[in-house]
Design a protein around this nucleic acid. Sequence first.
DNA 1: TGTACATCAGTGAACGCGCGTTCACTGATGTAC
DNA 2: TGTACATCAGTGAACGCGCGTTCACTGATGTAC
Lengths: 192, 192
Amino acid sequence: MTRYDKGHKLETRQRILDVAARQFRERGVAAAGLAGIMAEAGLTNGAFYVHFESKDDLVAAVLGEALARREEKLRERAAGGDGIKAVVADYLSRKHRDNPGNGCPTAAMVADVARQPAATREAFTTRIAPIIARIAAQLPMRSEAARHRRALAIYALMVGTLQLSRAVSDDDLSDEILDSGVAAASALAGES
Amino acid sequence: MTRYDKGHKLETRQRILDVAARQFRERGVAAAGLAGIMAEAGLTNGAFYVHFESKDDLVAAVLGEALARREEKLRERAAGGDGIKAVVADYLSRKHRDNPGNGCPTAAMVADVARQPAATREAFTTRIAPIIARIAAQLPMRSEAARHRRALAIYALMVGTLQLSRAVSDDDLSDEILDSGVAAASALAGES
DNA sequence: TGTACATCAGTGAACGCGCGTTCACTGATGTAC
DNA sequence: TGTACATCAGTGAACGCGCGTTCACTGATGTAC
């Protein structure tokens, strides 16, 4: 192993994080095992504890990382001139629905988060705040409090809509759910 | 055992269903084990297969039952004159947030459902249809299609809001999320 | 009314398996002299 | 330049445990004669 390569350990850690982030979102936190994650990262069981203290620690790290990436994406899109409608259209797209593995961690894991230890729930809470703030910044309401409140609801609507569209077995209904979410988000994003 | 008591087997089955429904909602489907469920129902491991074919079968049965009960409740409330606002206020209440074990199965299990076999997802799809229809019936839009579309969005908003409020670690933020959901649902339930 | 047999919900031990975690060890590298 | 030692990311076997599922068996009941 090229141990002293500068950053080698960090790269390995990142590889584990990336694999875990995908498996947690696809299979759920409880159903994704450490042995499977490590194997897919090209490592054996024992190496896990060189990088993380426990599975709970990994879950918290994955949530923090994945949410930070989502927020960064939102920042870039806002800088590029994309408004709330483009963001919603992307979030409630067929592509996002059909690819949970690299999609929104909140939609895939929020119920798991509610059952995690306090540290993980705190990491989640900290990381969604800037995402909510990015949505709020796109809204037309005059008071900041009103924008914040409405942003929370739009985020919850997006998360719930994506999850429902993934759960139903009827393709037409699933599409219909996405469309209804887009229309409702648009209504909520208007002046009120 | 008083075997031939009429309905004894059905009562036992119901007891297993009730325990499983609570554990699945509290711990998640993957984390709730059959041995624990059977023990809490006052039975041993082996008796499980007298009542269900497999854990997947139990999951489908629990979803069907629990959603049917929710729909029945909605029917009773509509008959009693409760409108959409009362239903939303109840759904997005602190009490519901703090008691997932006997709360909405969709909010607790929707991400698990998306990962279940086709039969379970079909059971889910079939059972949420009348719930959506009950919400739609309370809406003021003129066309049935418009009411249906809006009902889907309101349901998704309620589900997403409840989940978010359960996941965050900050009590004030959690309350704020519930309030924002109530306000947004009210906005979506108006004429548009 | 009394005996022999069939039914079947439930028991409880066992199956193979994967889980999260631990730990003695490896071996490539860097540092000291 | 060459040797001795320290470092530490990663190996791979093992730990105890709980998982979903199977199965030979129990024992209270109902039915047949």
